[in-house]
Design a protein around this nucleic acid. Structure first.
Lengths: 189, 189
DNA sequence: TCAAGTGTTTACCGATTGGTACAATGACTT
DNA sequence: AAGTCATTGTACCAATCGGTAAACACTTGA
């Protein structure tokens, strides 16, 4: 188990960066072989379904990461306010302070978005739902939770695009800080 | 002037929809010839630089539209609060209530983003600057204007991606409404 | 020792890519 | 009527696309 799984995991991590940087259509097999150091034979051995299966694996991996590191933390935290803090910190870290795009957003903004519609929908609706529930536990008025969660999840995506377009990663952190104050009107001292 | 310019303008409008829907890398010349009804000969007559020049023309056209319809309106409006209202209404209309993506965002989230970095930067920084100035004229505290403008411009992009990913165009309008209340704490009656 | 996987290399496939060349068309001048 | 020139259709190009096939090496348990 260990070695091949570990190697496949390494490949997935590399694939994620390639897709992030070049988009789905912009990622060619030759680019993948170059960056991973694996020939086509190996790639098709790991991913018989080709490029589409590679992207699916990457999206699944990302979804799993967010589920365990962000969403679960929101759900099971004792202190909701602290969990929200942790979410923003985790997001800032994951997206490398605005220097890294969100592959989900990249795919959503590409022509391949319908091919991965289920993954995209799951990712965003899970995040929205878990965030909304946590906001409610943190004392946010019930009617406010869903809209606010929507604003935050969307705001993060937009901030990433803005940061990249302005060539100013700091924009991400600034927006993130504003969004945080929005759901933590009384931040823990 | 009239005919060829008009036709070129029609082509650009069609190109814009193609790029929006399929992204830069996902847009092939065969797809373009199919959707526009123009052969390669005509296309390369209008755009000798090929696909890249087509995308540049489209981005330039979009930038011009926003400049005249959104940014200028912000700058020269007598009533800033009313101009802000008009901006949100114009944006909601332009993006078809969340059913249409922003090509600037699409390009920014693609591998072609560095090829059009200048256009992207200009679009977003102009929008941010004009919006911030209008916010200040509308009475927003000076230190709040730039961050708030950043949040709004980014929030619009994120809302578009969210709406598409959730397959729920309404999410766009909901986020837009929230952003509007944020810069119009005392909306005009 | 030997067979059975598990990976990997390499050559190859037809299709499509973005782009070029050029002759034919057509409208408008002169 | 001749000439000009913007526009267009078509054939063609090398390069690359995603994907397949099969021979090859390496490890592994029996």
């Amino acid at each position: 188990m260990s070695r091949i799984v570990a190697e496949r995991q390494d490949v997935i991590a590399t694939l994620a960066e390639i897709f992030r940087e070049h988009g789905y259509d912009g990622t060619s097999l030759s680019l993948i072989t170059e960056k991973t150091g694996l020939g086509k034979g190996s790639l098709y051995h790991f991913f018989p379904g080709g490029k589409e299966e590679m992207a699916e694996a990457v999206l699944g991996d990302i979804a799993a990461w967010f589920r365990t590191h962000i969403f679960e933390a929101l759900r099971h935290a004792e202190d909701p306010a602290q969990a929200l803090e942790a979410m923003f910190a985790g997001v800032d870290n994951y997206f490398r302070q605005g220097r890294r795009l969100c592959l989900m957003g990249v795919i959503a903004a590409s022509g391949a978005h319908d091919r991965f519609a289920r993954e995209l929908n799951g990712y965003f609706s899970d995040w929205r739902a878990d965030l909304a529930a946590t906001l409610e536990r943190a004392g946010t008025p019930k009617a406010e939770c869903n809209p606010l969660a929507e604003e935050i999840v969307g705001g993060i995506q937009g901030a990433l695009i803005l940061a990249r377009s302005l060539d100013d990663p700091g924009a991400f952190g600034r927006v993130l800080a504003r969004l945080k104050t929005r759901c933590l009107p009384f931040p823990p001292n």
